[in-house]
Amino acid sequence: MFNGGMATTSTEIELPDVEPAAFLALLKFLYSDEVQIGPETVMTTLYTAKKYAVPALEAHCVEFLKKNLRADNAFMLLTQARLFDEPQLASLCLENIDKNTSDAINAEGFTDIDLDTLVAVLERDTLGIREVRLFGAVVRWSEAECQRQQLQVVPENKRKVLGKALALIRFPLMTIEEFAAGPAQSGILTDREVVSLFLHFTVNPKPRVEFIDRPRCCLRGKECSISRFQQVESRWGYSGTSDRIRSASLLVLLPIDSCFPSSPPQTRSAAPRCRPLLPALAAPRTRGQREGRGGSRGRVPALPCPVSPQGPDSHYGTKGLRKVIHESPTSGAKTCFTFCYAAGNNNGTSVEDGQIPELIFYT
């Protein structure tokens, strides 16, 4: 094209959907392998590289975004990653949001995301935030969306723009006080939904509700384990009741396939299946149950998590310690576990004796 008539003729080619700076970056890369991208041009350059099928430049743009991913831009980059079909970048954004949920939802870009991105985040079981604060952020998003759609910012329209996202708020994970002070008075829920949730909080057996009651389990950090037992004895019998752990200050997993066996015990099988206690973020707080401090985190009660009896008589742990302190070998951080007797028929489980050989937790 640089020979013949076109060489002496001034010709302009319009590219209406490509920014000049991004197109210049593309040309420089094609002719000199020079990568010229920055925070202001990376997204338009990524779009241009995809439009003209230059995968090497795409890779440079994605790598730049990964290195500059932070909590305050995670939602903006997640939206772009989904738009440009970059699953690896989207996955990294979601992981960042899981680890820094509070900072991410308070960032300016949160209210700018589209509904599908909001839904993708609310579906996750790994968000590290209390549900009532998540609800507050979603309400802020709905107000911004009403303005984008030029709708009056009233409860009816907030519910309308939220659509399927509203059903993903896990109202049953809130305390009754949190629900009464916030969602119940927001006007976003119908009267029938408010009544059914109040019944869920106050009566037993709990009636079914239309909202998810599954805890958001935050499995983050390094896996650690502790055991309170100093000795193993036999035999432990089963009387049809359950062994249980009543409260935990952080997410604890019970290795339910590696309870003390009838043969000489191993504390843990090669690949145990684990049943999680309710995580601290989702645990209901009831009057009189809050205990001291555990490590650097407040101790928050979790619901009892029974391990059903099964199989023949077995060995059991004895000489249990009332307090076990785990110290991280790398950071030196300490996590304190305090074991207390829980009233009720627990099949003989106590501070001294029990059938659960160890607890797995995440620092």
Rank of each mutant, 00 (worst) to 15 (best):
T126H: 04
A59Q: 14
P16C: 06
R290Q: 12
V161S: 06
T190W: 01
K160W: 06
E358R: 03
R246M: 08
T330V: 15
Q355F: 07
T338Y: 08
V203F: 10
S314C: 15
T330I: 15
P207G: 08
V54Q: 02
L359E: 03
Q289G: 04
E19P: 06
A71P: 05
R287H: 12
R148V: 09
A271N: 13
R220T: 12
T111Y: 05
D243F: 07
E233Q: 14
S269A: 10
R140K: 15
L321T: 09
S247E: 12
L173Y: 01
D33M: 14
G221A: 05
E63H: 14
L83A: 10
D116S: 08
C259N: 09
G348S: 06
G187S: 06
R214F: 00
I97Y: 01
A271Y: 10
K222P: 01
L26R: 12
K222A: 10
I113C: 07
L115S: 07
I245G: 03
S350F: 05
P357G: 04
R82I: 10
N73R: 02
E86T: 11
S296W: 13
D72Y: 02
Q88G: 09
K164Y: 07
I188L: 07
V154W: 00
G320K: 03
G294A: 14
E291R: 13
C340K: 13
A22N: 09
